[in-house]
Design a protein around this nucleic acid. Sequence first.
DNA 1: CTGTTAGCGCCTTCAG
DNA 2: CTGAAGGCGCTAACAG
Lengths: 336, 336
Amino acid sequence: MKVTLKDIARESGYSITTVSHALSGYGDVNENTRQHIIAIAERLGYQPNLAARHLRSKQTKTIGMVIPLTTYYSDPFFMELLSGVGRQAAEYGYDLLLSAQQPGEEELSAYRRIVASSRIDGVVVARVQRDDPRITFLKEARHPFVVFGRSNANDYPYIDVDGRAGIRQIVLHLARLGHRRIAFILSPPQLAFTTLRYEGYCQGLDEAGLSLRDDYVVEGDLTRASGHAAALRLLALPEPPTAIVACNDSMAIGAMLAIQERKLVVGRDVAVAGFDDIPAAANASPPLTTVRQPIYDIGRQALDMLIRVIRNEPVENLHVLLVPELIVRASSGGMI
Amino acid sequence: MKVTLKDIARESGYSITTVSHALSGYGDVNENTRQHIIAIAERLGYQPNLAARHLRSKQTKTIGMVIPLTTYYSDPFFMELLSGVGRQAAEYGYDLLLSAQQPGEEELSAYRRIVASSRIDGVVVARVQRDDPRITFLKEARHPFVVFGRSNANDYPYIDVDGRAGIRQIVLHLARLGHRRIAFILSPPQLAFTTLRYEGYCQGLDEAGLSLRDDYVVEGDLTRASGHAAALRLLALPEPPTAIVACNDSMAIGAMLAIQERKLVVGRDVAVAGFDDIPAAANASPPLTTVRQPIYDIGRQALDMLIRVIRNEPVENLHVLLVPELIVRASSGGMI
DNA sequence: CTGTTAGCGCCTTCAG
DNA sequence: CTGAAGGCGCTAACAG
């Protein structure tokens, strides 16, 4: 049987209250009796029943994350985020509750359920969409949360990588290498970061004195296959681009494959760059020029912020924007 | 404020008991009053307080997994396992509690804490070691658990991939291609699966009529770098092997790089094969011949077993052994 | 410094 | 069919 405060009380001769006080440091207890009680607790292998403690104290020392089943788990990205969040949570003595749900309706109801059932003290929301219903819900419920990514509204705590600056850097890098015809493979428009990265593309072109061409902007769905298809479309243009920037690494790798199928050399005939710096980027051939998202650190920082929100501490920096780092490799031709 | 049974009782005019009965299907309640109560509960957005329910019912509908911080998170493998477990847990209405801990002492104490604090109904243990202290502990504590991997003792529920059969298949495949000098890169000896895979290697050699050579067996630590180093050592032998089998894909990929650095052609001069079929295996150049561990399914099945253990159902198959599938790609030369 | 009292929200006998 | 009462294990006022 599980050992409870009651057992220790019986064993030590003190009352439950005193035992509780001695063990949790609440209230004043004679140092001798405290030691005595602690010794007994250890001998019996006492571990507080957390359900009881949570019921009483209204806090669970648990952080939640809802994982859309289909997309995320396979996403190397999400895993790294999870890792950072988990690491930092452990640091604060928090555990991580994962709820795997289908995205969409079911996902939202998972939030509803988890939040209302007082199971967790706060939530980390990832991969935010434009007008994300989860955020609306959490704001209304006034439940502590922090978001990885920005939506159009900014009235909530978030941490994000400056995608605009990242893509801008890439475009300028390519322009510096002499490229005048730079194309862009977009991510799905409903994702919040798409707009920002597109802005970075436009801004980069502008600063480089290049003009925006509609036929150089095509849409993908973040998969390798869609990058492949998009690149084929671009290469079939009467005046094909000499450089292709993709919204993420997977699409960029897909684009490289398409270029190679056309018997062109990546980095010489057509430069390619991505965004994320997933492990596959460095291992691609040629290695992919990209922009690094420090996902692990983002997870840690997101959790830091969340803890502050939970503690109701003044969150002086409710918004954290990290500047991504340009990683130049052979695919952009700068290293050949 | 959170809405409780009390609120619904007040609102509906019935007692807390009746409301509880109506909502949870316990006891007989007039169908009309039941509908009435359910309607009010929905209007108020009632969600049962899980802490209270857990305290009362002694079960948490939560499965735990302890994640060693350093190794696992970066392990693509562990993530897939997590994914399978999470998916199936959701199926049963269970959530997943992750506790990120440093391996070793701290990890064991995490088990102790989590188990004794009645936070979870069962645990999934991964990457088991020889004489794993976690297993000893869980057995003693009589806490429901299931293990991915076998140790030397078999008196607990586990699910595993037959590593012996897997490596044996690879060795036979290579022998069939004409190889007589087949080397083996071991994983660390403290990991439980190392012995089994080594046995598979010996068995394969034996069946192919080849004899075991000590100098053809070298040890790595599962990393790409260690595979690289091990391959260099093998290639420096007076009579170097014509085929290298590694205990996992990462080491195999490291070995391929070493071979290529020596200006040899993988698949022609030296055949290489791994174990796991991680995503990088198919993307390597040349693509890596390997043996597939259906990790995602393993996670799902592990959870199935765990639920049965929790429910005290007769576990007819306490031990599940999956036969891995040989995936022949170019690195072994069979496809060139 | 220690103990008594009173719940947290829920489930579950046991009586009406 | 409905309700009153008790308690899961813990914490927090409030007295002594």
